[in-house]
């Protein structure tokens, strides 16, 4: 009785909200720009410059990566710091003085395993997929300037490979078990690498994150090459940070879980 009453109140509230928001959006939607027009305020002034000058400034065909890592590199630095902060917060909330002792050793096949993932076929199939994901992740990182990809996708793919190997209980040695402290240190190293890429031009007489003055190679005329190197260093830093944070949150959440199936 109580459940169906609360369900009815939920449904009534939802319908009222939908009608209210729909009607008001119809009325006030007239000052938003028409979708698909060429001369909206968002499509003028700055994005035209980015589109026309991305290839000659940074030698990267992917305009989104050029905007993210070169023209707006300062914003990406602080987004990476926000990610690192979220990882530290998750570890701080769930850290406990007395460790919950459960079996971290390798499970054997006699281990009351009725769950479907402990069959041989699934294990072998997943074991083939994991190195392919790792290679694809590094490919996406390095080709971030030519086609789709970049630092965020590559870090998430590398962490996805580790996650796949960690969750499947197998009966042989698995990938080396990464603790949450090591993963957090990796994430911090990634953010530090990003900051070092910013500080290096300052030692050479430039501003923070000014890629024209990186001290690499012969800066005789190859300004676009210097920008390309700077973008690659930034992407490596972002990849390390994202991979570390995803593995950290995974380990911290998995430590309190007893997998007995």
């Amino acid at each position: 009785m109580k459940k169906s009453n609360s369900n009815k109140k939920l449904a009534a509230g939802l319908i009222a909200i939908i009608i209210l928001v729909g009607a008001s959006a119809l009325k006030i939607g007239s000052f938003l720009p028409v979708i698909g027009a060429q001369d909206t305020p968002a499509n003028s002034y700055l994005s035209e410059y980015y589109i026309s000058h991305a290839v000659e400034d940074t030698a990267s065909h992917n305009i989104v990566t050029a905007v993210l890592a070169d023209y707006r590199g300062f914003d990406t630095l602080f987004e990476t710091c926000v990610l690192f902060l979220s990882g530290i917060t998750a570890v701080m909330i769930l850290s406990t003085k007395k460790k919950i002792s459960h079996d971290k050793t390798i499970r054997t096949i006699n281990d009351n395993s009725e769950h479907i993932f402990s069959s041989n076929i699934m294990d072998a199939a997943f074991r083939i997929v994991v190195p392919i994901i790792l290679i694809y992740g590094i490919y996406v990182l390095i080709h971030g300037e030519i086609s789709l990809g970049g630092g965020f996708q590559a870090g998430a793919l590398l962490a996805c490979a580790y996650l796949l190997d960690r969750i499947i209980p197998s009966f042989q040695m698995r990938v080396k078990h990464i603790t949450d402290e090591i993963a957090l240190i990796t994430a911090g190293t990634g953010a530090l690498f990003y900051v070092i890429t910013g500080i290096l031009p300052m030692l050479n007489g430039g501003n923070f994150l000014e890629f024209n003055k990186l001290p690499f190679g012969s800066g005789a005329g190859d300004i676009a090459g210097l920008h390309s190197t700077g973008i690659l260093m930034i992407e490596i830093g972002v990849t390390l940070c994202v991979m570390g944070i995803i593995i950290t949150i995974l380990e911290v959440v998995l430590e309190r879980t007893d997998f007995d199936d």
Partner: peptide, 27 residues
């Protein structure tokens, strides 16, 4: 226009971090 894509790319990854912190609080 490539500028909204670049801004929203980081927003998606930050939403994953927020979900992680929320789940830690939940436990």
């Amino acid at each position: 226009n490539p500028v909204p894509h670049a801004l929203m790319l980081t927003a998606i990854v930050v939403s994953l971090g927020t979900t992680g912190v929320g789940l830690a609080l939940l436990m």
